[in-house]
Structures are given as structure tokens and as C-alpha cells.
Design a protein around this nucleic acid. Sequence first.
DNA 1: CCGCCTATTTATAAGAA
DNA 2: TTTCTTATAAATAGGCG
Lengths: 181, 181
Amino acid sequence: MGRRKIEIEMVKDPNTRQVTFSKRRTGLFKKANELSILCGAEVAIVVFSPGSRPYSFGHPGVDVVAAKYLQQETEPSDSQENPSSGAPDIEKLNLELGEVLAQIREGEKQVETHDEIMNQNDVTKLSNLKELRDSYKELQDWIKLRLSDIEISGYMMLLAQDPVVGIKAKSAKRKRRRRRN
Amino acid sequence: MGRRKIEIEMVKDPNTRQVTFSKRRTGLFKKANELSILCGAEVAIVVFSPGSRPYSFGHPGVDVVAAKYLQQETEPSDSQENPSSGAPDIEKLNLELGEVLAQIREGEKQVETHDEIMNQNDVTKLSNLKELRDSYKELQDWIKLRLSDIEISGYMMLLAQDPVVGIKAKSAKRKRRRRRN
DNA sequence: CCGCCTATTTATAAGAA
DNA sequence: TTTCTTATAAATAGGCG
């Protein structure tokens, strides 16, 4: 969304990368804020800049969202389960993965004929290849998004050990008055 | 960014709200993914839908980002501090808050003359009022974004108790081979 | 809830301050 | 690093299946 289209890949120039990070981080937080307001959703974000500087956003507060998450993971049977993020349909995912692999293979085959295409000076095929590469990249992104859904459950299991109980926070305002039943 | 502009406020119709949530959550995660790729940044997001269903995104993994965050918060003196998210310039924030309050007052004064404006049938003033209201809303959002930066430090303190040690995950594939040093 | 589609609104890449 | 501006690329509201 700028003067010109850019590929979604590591920005090489360190300076430009930093600028891009700043601008996009702002955009990301703004989106998160809008999501929380529009839908009454709770959001928590943590980001590390290229220089490893931490940034974050939370509504109504990162700690609140985290606590809720932990609690939910601890007792998923009480209220309702969450197949969507806790355990997305693995079967379906595998199927989709299979399709993706097929498409990737297809793409590789085309890449092998790269030289041939260049010799043919066949612009049409060349653009086709580019499109394919793009769609492949999109697929990668899509998969990553789906996979991240899986990872989270592990993450939560990870933190669910000793929930929001017995904290010895020394600066934050903790308003933990809930116990797991 | 759609057929028509919408105000950033709770979407009333539950059905529409859910749809909006789904679409925007996808968009948010996509943005997060792009940010991580473009800038080599690490990102972790946790979201609760209006129906309290959890969703998340993480690159290279929520657990990784979290661990790094905790570690950094635990020993901030070693590498470098982070005034940007840990403790934004309170002084500056207060100044900006003051300006905002002034603008709000200004806005309220204008609102008081609302009837008068209507009687005057002065469209120009009316649109001015609307603009002002909008900018006010934007300011609120902006402030919330800034304030959220402050909250995070407390959150990290909270989780920093017992990091990534002694997990008993039972479903996800945990690739935890890290110990705190 | 997911996909597709289109008219519009937003986000943002570049460049300069 | 934040701000501003402008030209463009992207996201998404509303509708339909």
C-alpha cells in the first residue's frame, strides 16, 4: 500500500527496515485497537523490533487477557471448548497441506523449465511463473497463519502450570480475585 | 475500508459484529505476519472473540517471544533498557493529555451551541462539529494506544515469576529444549 | 464461519523535514 | 524516530452462496 508494491520478504536496507517497522507496528496496534472496540474483543500483542526492542499493546490490558487465557486453558470443560484455536481440525489441515505441497511441486516443475522459458522469450509463461511464485508465497503465509493456531495451544499449556496465583509482582496492579474451581 | 465508512465503536448487531471480528482478526494476523517477515521482527498476539473464543498468532512462536520478553524484563540492565514500552515518557504523555483535554473542552463548548447551530441551518459549522468529534475520537484511540504501552511492563513482571520451565503439555508438539541461563 | 465480489476507505512506500 | 504529503496497494463493509 504505498508508492509501489513491495514483496513480503526481509527488507534489506537496515534503515528502511527500521522505518518500515515503526510505521507498520503503529498500524498493527491501531488495527488491534479498532478490533477491540468494534467487537468488544480482548487483545494482547507483544513485538520485538529488528533491534530487539520490545513493544506491546493490550485491551483491556495484556495481563487481563493473559490471565483469562490461562484460566480458560486450565478448565476448558466447564464453559466451552475451543477447537478453533486450541485444536484446529488437524485432518482438514493435513488435507490442505497436501494440496499446498502439490502446488509447490507444480511450481518447482515450472521453475525447472526456467531457462527454456527465457529462451522462448515467452512473456506469457514468464508472467504465469511469477503469478505462481506469488501465490506460492501467499500459501506459505496462509499456512504459517494456520500453523500458528496450533502452536498456541502448546504455549498455553506451557504457561498454564501455575496460573495467576501467588504472584509476587512488585510493580503491576494485580486485581486477581478469582480462583480456579 | 468498505462499501461505506463505519465509526470505530461497538458494532451493535451481534451477527455483523462476529463477521467483522473474523475478517479483522484475519487481517490483523496477516499484518503481524508481514511485519515479522519484512522486518525480521518477533510477534505474539492473543485475541478473544466477542464470544470469548481464543485465537493467537506468533512468529517465530508465541512461546519464544514470551520467553525472550520475560528474560529481557528480568535482566534489563545487561543488554539495553526499553523506555519505549516499559516506561514511556510520562512527562510527555501528561503534556499531551493536557492538550487533549483542552481540545475536548473546546469540543464540549461547541456542542453546547448545538441547538443554535441547528437553528442557523449553518451546514458549515455542523460539519466542523462533526470533524471535531471525529478527531476527538481519534485522539482517544491514540491515547489508549500510548497508555497500553505502560501496562505491559506490569504484565511482564507478572509472568516473569516462573518462565519456561517444568512444562507438562499434553497435546501440542513442544520443542522446548531451552532452559533459563 | 469461509469464500467470493466490488465499491470505498485505509494503510503505507517513498521522500523530505 | 515521528510527522507530513502524495500516489498506490491493501483491507474490508455489505451482500450472496
